[in-house]
Design a protein around this nucleic acid. Sequence first.
DNA 1: ATTAATTTTGTGGATTTCCACAAAATCATG
DNA 2: CATGATTTTGTGGAAATCCACAAAATTAAT
Lengths: 408, 408
Amino acid sequence: MNPFATHFDSLEEFADRVSEVLQCPITIEDANHRLIAYSTHEHYTDPARTATIINRRVPEKVINSLWREGVIPKLLSNSEPIRVEMISEVGLGNRIAISIWKNKEVLGFIWAIEMEQTWTEEQFELLKQAAKAAKNLLLQLQIRKHKKEERIQEFFWKLLTGHFSSHNDIIQQCHVLNIPVYPFSSVVIFHFKQEIQPQVERQIDYLLKTTQQLAVPLYTIDHHRLTLLAAPKSNANAQADIKRFLRSFIAQMNERFRIEVTDGAFGSIYECYTKIEKSYKEAQTVLNMKRAFSHDLGNVQSYQELGMYQFFDLLLEKKRDGDFYNETLEKLKQYDNRHHASLVKTIETFLDHDSNVNETAKALNIHPNTLAYRLKRIAEIGEIDLHDMNQKVKLYIDVKLAKYEASH
Amino acid sequence: MNPFATHFDSLEEFADRVSEVLQCPITIEDANHRLIAYSTHEHYTDPARTATIINRRVPEKVINSLWREGVIPKLLSNSEPIRVEMISEVGLGNRIAISIWKNKEVLGFIWAIEMEQTWTEEQFELLKQAAKAAKNLLLQLQIRKHKKEERIQEFFWKLLTGHFSSHNDIIQQCHVLNIPVYPFSSVVIFHFKQEIQPQVERQIDYLLKTTQQLAVPLYTIDHHRLTLLAAPKSNANAQADIKRFLRSFIAQMNERFRIEVTDGAFGSIYECYTKIEKSYKEAQTVLNMKRAFSHDLGNVQSYQELGMYQFFDLLLEKKRDGDFYNETLEKLKQYDNRHHASLVKTIETFLDHDSNVNETAKALNIHPNTLAYRLKRIAEIGEIDLHDMNQKVKLYIDVKLAKYEASH
DNA sequence: ATTAATTTTGTGGATTTCCACAAAATCATG
DNA sequence: CATGATTTTGTGGAAATCCACAAAATTAAT
């Protein structure tokens, strides 16, 4: 009765059997669109399938199209086979697809290419049986993977916390754990609005496994945070690549799964794996600073872009020791208190806007001349020369530092 | 024969005796123009003398006049009495003055006011005898002072190196050593071109004791450096007061004694005596930074004015750890090397001149449009927004820091 | 040596900034 | 609440900055 009720030695054998029964090419993917097995009978194959087999994963643009078309959401919501119309822009022919379920979780997909004739009810029924049969085969894979996962997680945390001191040791360890090694990497942290629940983890895993903007050899989740190692393809536009990845990850989490990612940040890009710890700390610094200076650092994602805020932790420490007290700032604060004025706010905004009078006036909703007058007063009261870069830098840092101190 | 060849219980008694013999008011000062004794017979007294007695020191403007008139140089060069013409601007009447010598050192001065009749040869002779007699009396004072000096020196070094942790302990110690206590103080360091020789020490002592711009309760000399505690009169213009003192000290050392003081600097002004250590470190930092950034910090004397350079030591340390590597700066350096251009110099000068195109162009001897072009290139190559204060600050600091690192 | 790319300098005009002055509004204080 | 001091806003013109374009000079690379 059921043509798949026998033992299969491998998934490949299974794929071939399904292909034989249904008389069409078959591809089996895991939940992250990685290729698990494919049939090898001689049949017509569309370009999307060829690419998938060569790369051992579904090309990202194909995945994106399938999301846009609503195919994947449908597959994730029920276990019925569906017909997928050709999407010629990405080389996808007419297909039939079905998801493979274990309890309420999707383990993977079976794709069949629809040949000349449209499918009969019987064929659909057979495919459903195949999906059921695939479940057990896939489960074994899952379990194997799961055990390995834990060791990998531990390894990643060791990397993040600077447990290893030799690059070569790390590389060797990667080989043992079968973690791919890349020449450049940077630590990325995403902060989620809600604590990350197990079902969200699957969606994160999905996005990370499917993205092709960069490789994500390692990631870990705890509480609100997703921390991952990102390996950009080239060194040339590495920064830009990671930035793009951040943007699209946040957008996709939101669009596809309605999961809000509050913030994302990444550290410098290093070649040596021992620097992962540093990159991790940098990424954390970026997040901390963004929290303290959301207004100033709204568009900042990388440690490089943090600019002077890079050394705020360090400076705050010294400031706490009572070092660099700023006479100018104190005088301005004093004046503000005594006359409930807002010279500090004024100078801060002025410096925020690169000493541009008009922009600053607009930002403060005051007449440019008013600003000019205030600046004259600031120069007098604070005994500062507003055309002296050194003095301005010191004041700017001290103003921001005072805010930072207040927020800590 | 010699009317002074008896024992005197005190210098006051001596002064009265001289006054009696010469029939005129007598004032005795030490080498630093501090009042040591004065006669109390009823005689006419000029305003300068009154002021001297009230303040227990010769008013600074009087000292300055006497220097300008060449009186004091003459007194310091030989032991003959000289006639000093009236200087009415400073309330000085006609005087006769003589210096008191021990070996080749001047211990002090005797001043006599010339009454109606001009002095006879005999009177001059008597004054010379008085000066000789004063020597022994003054010597006792010197010796007493000298022993105390050593303990005071040690105490000062303890203050500078943070040996005490309680303000009250320090104050008490000051009382024991008879060191006056002031509400505000700051550590000042002068760097001399030549190593400071013993005879120069006397001249330093002289200047410090006679200055009235501020009090100098403690000072110490080693090698090229004079380190002192400066107590400004009021808190209001304390900074300005100390700055004026620095300027005039350096000028006077040069004008009066032809001694070159290369540099002077001072730390923050603190109320608590335990902060003297900090002020000392700050003053040292100022000197160090001025050496490294002579071009940028030519006019800087105080820690406050150091601005962002205040935290360069700290930053350099971190930089050495490989933290904050600046992508922009590296790219510009790279470009400079590859094309022997001078983008780094250009941006540095630009920022030095507060982002003013015209000034910068002038400083670099290039056409303003050339500068504009270079800035456009810098923005492109360094991927920096030259209207973003944060980025500019970071770059500015990194440029200067790179220089600092190179110089260390 | 030639060519292409890059850099420097020049010109003119639109725009913005800077300043001085004055009037109006607001604030502080007795 | 009256008064003077301080702050805000308005106006107009001189000065500067910015920008686009083009020519000249320099440099790099074949």
